[in-house]
Structures are given as C-alpha cells and as structure tokens.
Design a binder for these strands. Sequence first.
DNA 1: GTTTGTTTGTCTATCCAATAAACAAAGTTG
DNA 2: CAACTTTGTTTATTGGATAGACAAACAAAC
Lengths: 388, 388
Amino acid sequence: MTKTTTGDQALIKRINTAIVLEAILKEQPLSRAKISEITGLNKATVSSLVQDLIDNQLVREIGTGVSSGGRKPVMLEFIATAGYSVGIDLGVNYLRGVLVDLRGTVVAERTAPLSAVDPDDVFNVLRPFIQSLVSEAPPSPFGVVGIGVGVPGLVDSSGSVLYAPNLGWREVPLKDALSRTFGIPVLIDNEANVGAIGERTFGSGRGVSNMVYVSVGIGIGTGIILQRTLYKGASGFSGELGHLSVDAHGKPCRCGNRGCWELYASEQALLDQARSLGHSGDLDELLAAADAGDEAVRGLLAGIGEYLGIGIANIVNIFNPDAIVIGNRMSRAQPWIEQAMRRTVEERALNFHLRGVQLLFAELGGRSAVMGAAEQAVSAFFDRLKAG
Amino acid sequence: MTKTTTGDQALIKRINTAIVLEAILKEQPLSRAKISEITGLNKATVSSLVQDLIDNQLVREIGTGVSSGGRKPVMLEFIATAGYSVGIDLGVNYLRGVLVDLRGTVVAERTAPLSAVDPDDVFNVLRPFIQSLVSEAPPSPFGVVGIGVGVPGLVDSSGSVLYAPNLGWREVPLKDALSRTFGIPVLIDNEANVGAIGERTFGSGRGVSNMVYVSVGIGIGTGIILQRTLYKGASGFSGELGHLSVDAHGKPCRCGNRGCWELYASEQALLDQARSLGHSGDLDELLAAADAGDEAVRGLLAGIGEYLGIGIANIVNIFNPDAIVIGNRMSRAQPWIEQAMRRTVEERALNFHLRGVQLLFAELGGRSAVMGAAEQAVSAFFDRLKAG
DNA sequence: GTTTGTTTGTCTATCCAATAAACAAAGTTG
DNA sequence: CAACTTTGTTTATTGGATAGACAAACAAAC
C-alpha cells in the first residue's frame, strides 16, 4: 500500500526546489531573474530557494552575464562535480564500468573480461573493479552517491537477481552484497532496463516520453519507458518482449512458449543460421564477411532485420511509442539489417501509429547499459535529496 | 509541453481536500476524527476541509455514530446525488445509455437499436437519446456533470473519431457536436478503453493497478490500465492489441499486417469457421448449439479459447499485469472457452509473470463500456473540482 | 448518582512558504 | 547627466497546516 503523502509546506518547498533545480540543469547558465520568468515562481521565492541550493553545494554563482539594458545578471550553474556515481554493466563474459559526475560526464572508464560465473567468484572480481572506480573520484561534497548495476537477468525489487540463465544464477542477492561492501546505495536492474535509461538520458532517445529499447544480443531484452518512467509490471519485472510469440506454431522455446521473437531475431538466431551455412564464426566475423561482400551472410542479416521488423511492428502497435531504439551487440549490424527492418515495420505496423514513431539505433553503442546504470544511481540520489 | 505546476498553498489545500474526499468515498460513513487518523492530517485541518466540502454540497453529516467510550462521532457521507453523469455505448447496431450518480449507481438505463451509420443520422438518434437520460436526472446541486461516450474506433485527443471501420466513419467531430448541443463536458473514447475503466472501477478489476481489458467482439480491442491510469501512447491511441501478430506468416489482415490476433480469436473468426462447417447463425445460435451438445461447435469455441490464450500469454509477458479481463460479446462464451484459454496461457506465459496474474471475465457483462463511459465523465468532474 | 477517563471536534496561537510591492544596486541609452 | 531597465533583496502580508488547549459528550466503574 502506498503511503499517501499529505500536503504541507515542506512539500511545497520540495516541489519548488525541484522545479528550480531542473530549470538550472536544463538551461544553465542562467540568472535568478530568468528562473523566475520561466518557472513562474516569484523572484523572492527563487532567490530563497537558490540560496538553499548554494548552501547545499549543488549550485554556484559563476560571475555576471551580459546585461540586456539593466543590471548585469549573476549567472548560476549546477555543480556537476558535487558528487559522482558508478555504473556497471555486468555482462556474461565481460565487465564494463564508468565513473560519472552528476551530469553524466564520464570521468573514468574500465573494462575487464569475466571468465567466472559462480556468484562468489564474480563478487571477487567485481569488488576491486568497483573499488578502483570509486577511488578515482575526485574529492567532492557528496562523494560517490551510488552504484548502479545492469545484469543480464530478472531482478526483483529487493535487488536480488532472481534468474540469469546465461550466468546460471538463481536468487543471488547482489544488491545486499555490494551495499554491505561499499556502504552506499546500490541499484540493480536488468541490462535492457538500464540500457533504456541510458539511451533516453544520453543517447538517441533524449527527451522522449514513450520509448522502447530493444537490446538485441544473444537473446532479446527490452526496456520500456512510458511517461518518462521505466515501466515495471505488477511483480516488478516486465519487458520480456524477447518472449513475445511471433509465430504461434513456431519453434518451441525454453521458456515453454512457441515461436518467441528472440528465436528468430537475436544474435543466437543469426549464429545458428550461419552455422547451418557452414560459417562457424562469431558476430564480428560474420559482419566482416558481409563487409567483404559475402551475399549469403548478407542474406542472413537481412533476414534478421526482417524478423526484427516483425517484432518491432508489434511493439509499435502495442505501445504507440515516440521512439524505438535498437541497442546492444546486434546494433553493430545496422548497415545490413536496417533496410529490411524498416521496410518490414512500415509494411506491418498500423498507419496511425507509424506516423509518430522514430526507429533509431543506439547512439551510445556498447555504453547504453553502463551509462544508464550510472544514471539510475544519480537519479536515486536526487530523489533522496527531494525526500529528505 | 506540460506546464509545470508550481507549488503554493492552494496546491496544498487541493491535495489535502482530495485526500479527505477520497477517504470519505472509500470508508464512508466515517467521522472527522477517523479521517484524521487514517490520513495523518491534523484534526483541525480535517474539520476545516470537511466544512468546505459540506459548503460545496459534496459531503453531509448523517447523525451520530456509536461511541467507543467517549463522545459520539458525527458521521459523514459523500452526497452521491450531488450530481449525475451520462454514459453512452455507441455500438455498431445499438445504443446503450445510463444515467448514474457520482458513485456510479444507475438511476436510469436505455437501449435502442441503431440502424443508421451516417454520422448525421446517428446524431439525430443520439441527441434525443441522451436528452431523455439527462431529463431523468433529479434536481441536484451540480446537475448532469458530463457525458461520456464509448465508440468502436480510434479517437484522438480532441474527441474526434478518426477512424471507425465498422461504422464507416472518418474524422467525425463527435465531441464538438455533442458539447455544442448539451453545453456540458463530453468525453469520447474507444469502446475498449471505457470498458477497461468500467471493469476496473465497478467490475472484476476493482482496485487493481495494472490491468488489460480485452474486448472480444467482431474484432478485438484492448484497454490498457497501467499504474491505475489508462495508458495512451504517443499519439493518444494505443491498445490496438487486436492487431498484434501471433503468426508472422499467417493470414493477411486488412491492417496490412499478417496473422493478427483478431483474425483467430474474435467473434468474426468464430463465425467464419462456423460458416465453413455449415452453420450460418450468429453467436447466440452457436452458443445455443454448444449448450445443446453440438460437439463440432464446442470444438470451434475451444479453438477460439486456445487462440485467445495465445494472445493473452503474450499480453502477460508484455505487461506483467495484475489482471486480465475478458469482456464484450465473446465473454458470454465463457463456459466453452475458459478451459482451453487458461490451459494455453499457463503453457505459454512466463512462470514469473504467471504467478501474479488473474484471468477474469467481465462482471458487468454488456455494461462494461457504458459504465466506464459514465465514470470517465464523473472523474473528469472531480478533476475540475480539484483544479478549480 | 458520581467519578474517572476517553473520544470528538473546535478554537487559538504559531509557524512557514509564497507572494506582491517597495527598494537598492547596477547597468544601458540618448 | 537624466531617464529608464534589469536584477535581486527586503518587508509586510496572506493563507494553510499544526500542536496543544479546551469544552462537550459519552461509557464504565464505583
């Protein structure tokens, strides 16, 4: 049951402080007078709230701006380096991590191979990996405000990895383990969910309200952002669109269903088809072959594009989103899959919905997830500020 | 661009008034002291807000309650008859209308056949139909506060019917026409959307947060309620799950796609299959035949149930909802389709998602849409109260 | 009947955030 | 320099929530 927040003056102040801070984040550098103008808040109110933000080391004055016929304005900016956040992408065979400031500027970045899969072994690699990023954070008022982690599996609301087939994990209390070690807030979420956040905040989905991020790797995962918020279903895990059936009588899937989308449009599907053609290489080798003019491989990739389009047409009809972003490894095949994909979506999706939707590829490349994970930790920090 | 609402004391009062009113609606009859206790608001605050509600004729005192060892409480109740609302279900060949009070109690109800399909002809039937319901409203402080209409087609945010294939309508400004005539707020929405609202407010989905209402009639429409709110996509129309493809290489659909769910699981699908078996009757006749022991018809119905299950399994995987409610005409076939439907969903949906979901049939029968339409008008009235 | 303690709902004084208006400071323009 | 603009602070006021005091009304125990 959600506790109903009653209204009092503290609530007002939190609301208005958030409005002021958001204005500074979005339009900086800007003056108090300008904030008053764009937010509709009284000048005196803005002055008072800005003073609080300055006292809290979140905002600073950076000198005067140019006059427009009167007294020069005192320009304000958000102190992005007031705190830092760590983002981790825990892959099946790699680790990727970033240290970012509160605006998402990357301060440090690391990658490492990951051969272990046993949870304890992974912890023993992960802990020093995170520690090294934390120790790179410059001195700052708030320090490292949180750690966000994206994992390839189902995560419950307590931050436990319920099920991660490609790691062989079940019920691994990752959040507990990390927050005990580091003593700062830890946020765990599915790789596709944090990827969606990453692309929406820093990548091709910037500013969009309703977006579906399709993470095409070995399988297909999806992160669904509705009304600017990550959608999670009743039990806290949604977005299993990889197991949307696109062929009711198709191949059986290990999930129990038949004809799941990811059986036809994932990297695994591509590799399986390639193997039956005699290619035994990985995705990179296939892309190289396509670049070199191998028509058979190009045909396979176009086929993947078509099946991606089939599922995406369904997503368009279901959610009528502003944008769909294709990410993860398969986005590297963009030149070979995009045309078939677009054509298929245009053929199959409803016209009314098609009109408003953008079909995009991830801008952040392999960094969608890691940036989104870091952003999750930052936004949890801001939420704490507002609540406290 | 959404205008950011800044916080001031009027906002506090609106928030708290809404909290108090909601407490009364949910727990009535109850005393001021009890309201203070369950909302966390100060007794004095509650007294003041209740007085405003009494002055506004929304709440009244109904005498004293039983003492629990001290002064007897003065019990309060919501004045459900402070206003009324009209709900209309505009079907392909029928009109159904209700007049309800602010709590949704039906005061008057009408149905009428509808042979016309030309918009102007429909208006000429619809206007006196609504007028007769409006004139049944008893005298009340607020009178008839609004008219809600559900239509079998796509509706845009301005209340125009963009496209209603079974009526042959395109770009019909229904809301404009009705609000000009009656001079009160009119809300138009898709039949499945208002049906979803109806079942969530008064029917089998009462109190649920995430629910998908599947309206199975000639076609399949869906109303998606997420976080207690009707989800509309970027362009304002979502929920076209009838055109979710469940067979990528299946029958071509008039929407341009292939293998759309409604080609296999709708009333139309059933009738088509029945015709190829030599049955020429409508749904009622088929149900009668099934009741009478016709094994062939029972087999057809079970087949529809299975295909419903295939689509519902997809919906479960997509949204991970608390409940799925099957409504509209086909819900009458519940005895013949339910078993196959449940079995298919259990076979195909992901276990993690299956655990929390309820599979339900509409409680309101043919009144889901009309009650939801009326409720939309009521809740718009409450929104106006809060805003003003 | 009397006493005691409880419950209800109002009243009063106080607090606090936002606001309008006045104002001082710092600028531009002619 | 005079007149006007713009910025940002100060001051007095408004309005809603709150704690605590309070009176009225009541049950239960004696």
